[in-house]
């Protein structure tokens, strides 16, 4: 019978037992770690400070802010600034609050994200699993589209939207974001599907599944991680976009970002900082929520895409 090597032989040679131990091993060994955590805590506070200021000041009356207590917690807690920002504050010429614009943004972002993600997945599937002449060129052009600065397309896009009869409407904004989004979503899905075994597609072909069946039944169910990455990316970009919203929307179709700007810039007497803070938090809430809900998939998806692809 063969004898298994004992652990004594395996560990021999690691470490030097003859070396005398330092007198205070605990402190000297832990010191770097203590410093590290102290630094990390410091930076953490530094980064969280703006959020604290926003939350704290959105919950106090204006008088407390103008009195100079910006860093202090509210003396008299109040939700009034939030109510005001949501439903009564002056946005541009009308005192509607941010609510209609929040709804505009939702109506814009949901179809834009959904459609660009699905089209990106389809593109990725075709580009990797159904080789055709010029596939590389088309992918190259889509990729190129990702890197065209927004400002460059403003005037041609305005003209296009005019011709299509979509200028100043929410569908127009959806269209613009769709066009910009497809490049990125295609990039994500193409790289993800490049690592997806082609033999599975072939097996499904022999099993009798057609183009769309293979997509729905075989590829999409395995695309969870990359879909999350794509959705987070698209959602954040489209929700936070200001330029397209400011350029292509009318008063009644403006997204949240533009309305927030109007709220802050509408000067009727005093600047209501507490209302502004509340409005800014409202504008940031959805993206924050998406990150919190899907964030752990985000990192996982990015890793999956990069390591395999």
């Amino acid at each position: 019978m063969a004898t298994a090597p004992t652990s004594r032989f395996i560990t021999a040679g690691t470490g030097d037992p003859t070396q005398p131990r330092a007198k205070g091993p605990r402190l000297s060994a832990h010191l770097p770690r203590v410093i590290l955590y102290a630094l990390l805590t410091l930076f953490c506070i530094y980064y969280l400070l703006p959020l604290y200021v926003m939350v704290a000041n959105s919950l106090k009356p204006l008088s407390e802010i103008t009195a100079g207590g910006m860093m202090a917690l509210p003396d008299a807690w109040t939700l009034a600034p939030w109510q005001s920002a949501w439903s009564t504050a002056q946005i541009g010429v009308e005192a509607t609050g941010l609510r209609p614009y929040f709804i505009n943004s939702l109506v814009m972002v949901i179809p834009a994200v959904a459609i660009s993600t699905i089209l990106g997945a389809l593109n990725g599937y075709v580009l990797t699993k159904w080789h055709f002449r010029g596939a590389t060129l088309i992918f190259g052009l889509l990729l190129f589209g990702c890197f065209i600065p927004f400002q460059m397309v403003l005037i041609p896009m305005a003209r296009m939207l005019g011709l299509m009869g979509l200028s100043g409407t929410v569908p127009g904004l959806i269209f613009v974001h769709l066009v910009y989004g497809i490049g990125f979503s295609t990039l994500y899905f193409r790289n993800y599907y490049a690592a997806f075994p082609t033999e599975l597609v072939r097996a499904a072909q022999i099993d009798g599944a057609g183009f769309f069946r293979i997509f729905w039944r075989i590829l999409l169910p395995s695309s969870g991680p990359i879909a999350v990455v794509c959705i987070i990316w698209q959602f954040t970009n489209i929700w936070n976009d200001f330029l397209f919203g400011a350029s292509f929307a009318d008063f009644d179709s403006q997204p949240m970002t533009v309305a927030l700007n109007n709220l802050v810039n509408s000067s009727t007497g005093v600047k209501e900082y507490n209302v502004h803070f509340a409005g800014a938090l409202m504008a940031a809430a959805p993206t924050l929520l998406v990150y919190i809900v899907a964030g752990r998939f985000f990192v996982r998806g990015l890793m999956a895409g990069s390591v395999k692809g």
């Binding site: 075994p197 033999e199 599975l200 072939r202 097996a203 499904a204 022999i206 099993d207 009798g208 599944a209 069946r213 039944r217 075989i218 169910p221 395995s222």
Partner: peptide
């Protein structure tokens, strides 16, 4: 019918689903 080197089993389906898929199609 074909058996592939990597087996090419659909990872999202159970064994039953894998065997059934072709007949379903």
């Amino acid at each position: 019918a074909m058996v592939f080197q990597s087996y090419a089993l659909y990872p999202n389906m159970t064994v039953r689903g894998n065997i059934s898929f072709g007949m379903e199609m």
